[in-house]
Nucleic acid binder design. Sequence first.
DNA 1: CTGTTAGCGCGTTCAA
DNA 2: TTGAACGCGCTAACAG
Lengths: 330, 330
Amino acid sequence: MKRRATVNDVAKLARVGGSTVSRYLRGIPVRPNIAERVARAVDELGYAPDETARALRLGRTRTIGMIVPRVANPFFSLAVQCMEEEIQQRGCTMILLTHQDRMAQQASHLATLLRCKVDGVILTAAPATTLQNVRSVLPDVPIVAFDAFLSSEVDSVFLGNREAAFSATEHLLAHGHTQIACLTAKEHIYSYQQRIAGYSDAMTRHNLKSILMTAPDYDTLRSALKASIQSNKPPAALLALSDVGSLNVLRAFDELGMSRSQYLPFVGFDDPDFAALIDPPLTVIRQPIRKMAHATLRLLFQRIDESAPHEAQQMTLPGELLCRRSCGCA
Amino acid sequence: MKRRATVNDVAKLARVGGSTVSRYLRGIPVRPNIAERVARAVDELGYAPDETARALRLGRTRTIGMIVPRVANPFFSLAVQCMEEEIQQRGCTMILLTHQDRMAQQASHLATLLRCKVDGVILTAAPATTLQNVRSVLPDVPIVAFDAFLSSEVDSVFLGNREAAFSATEHLLAHGHTQIACLTAKEHIYSYQQRIAGYSDAMTRHNLKSILMTAPDYDTLRSALKASIQSNKPPAALLALSDVGSLNVLRAFDELGMSRSQYLPFVGFDDPDFAALIDPPLTVIRQPIRKMAHATLRLLFQRIDESAPHEAQQMTLPGELLCRRSCGCA
DNA sequence: CTGTTAGCGCGTTCAA
DNA sequence: TTGAACGCGCTAACAG
């Protein structure tokens, strides 16, 4: 096992000074014949700069930290995928951390990112996180909030949750249903709160009372839904606020032994692979995840380059109602 | 924006030498009253060691690189999730890179991991990758191959693909079917080749001819499947070699306008969330992903600690046949 | 057990 | 334009 080559090894072989090698590699003009010699030496030794040394010297690491609740979930796995592609494309690498909605873990991750001196952070914060929580650990690192509100003082990218839920509800209303229930576990999550607000907006607009079903976890939610369906005043249609929510609605129908014709009309969120393939095909609000990832990184790199305006930017991208059949459309 | 505190700042405040601070932080015994002073100074300055400096000094980064084809896929997203949890738990951080089955991108990623001086690599190699390809870039970094064969000279963790496909096929055979077709796109992927072998083993054992349907991509595969179903000699049952494969089988049925009762019996691989919820519930080979992740990291850290035997270890974990109804079971 | 010193590999002064 | 010397923050070696 031989040591990796360093700038000085290259310099010696090319019979030049170390700083000349450094300059050559960074594209700063050097005399042509010297450039030639350096190039050959680099090639011969298989030299590649050591990022750890460069990081120490420059104080920048070309590394972006991403903290999300989890990745085993269609929404986040696609988001992570898109982010990774773009980060890569910009010559950086991504450190991925998951907090599982636990603030303690999130705090520990932020500390890790501080020690690793990441150049920027993409954060889907755990519920109840304040800017104070984050800034007390990471005072001066560019941050973009993704999918979860953190503060109006940081750049943020979201789906237009409220409007999306509003239009989904309006769609169900247009089918003539009035007893529309809105279901979610994890009601403390920002995006879901916004979606609940949008649902309520639509119900209120039609002088209808909101029927909100929430629970601490999906198993409990499913039980509540089943009980409600079997009660003497069952809902006529359902709005599920996430892909996992939709799955649990289906599972509830299944566990009640309902046939396809007995299924309640419903609309979900997100557009996982299976949505179009099950029976009935799911009508959903599709999030423009790729665009959201792109926007997030644009904001983040603007901060890193210091080419951003001082005030924080909040970007909201519209969801798209993908009308299939679960809502009742033919 | 004030500078982050360094060891020397702490040392000065605690009126001790820098190395004493370093030792205290690393758990090496120091005199109690000194420890006390250092602890207070650390606390007061909010000191946290700079990993980039430590990395340069030690040559180790406490960073693990993971390269997978993609993460927007139920199998890999869960694998990444499990790996991340364990890596975190061992006090390291994960760099995540995706190669999308492209060797050029994989090579570039390997180079990135070299420059970043990761302590270890988990690699799901792109098809046709040789050990030579990898080692020419990363000569001396511990590597574990996960889910894709690389070489018998590196530690590896796989599903028992061949046995799993064998038992899935046997199950379909036990239902009395003989014209069992095996479907996959991406037949060049190692795991799929193994599964094909297992399928063939079972068919051969019953003196039946294998019916292999492959295609360069899933859209083409789906077309071929539809044509085959509509031909005058349609298959009687299907074995899909991945979750995406199962999805495409369902989609083919759907696109042909087949009713549930016309669905061909079939068995898939992987156990995505929707598998149990669709109609019919999917019978699948479930991979023990969490255990596979655990095994992978155990092997990797054994290499990193140099507590591993010299020769490479190949671990194979058994899949589990989750019998639901799509196979024809009541 | 403690403090001083050197050097990991790089980029960046500052003379020449 | 070039090369020698310095220092980023840390830990290991050494002398006290």
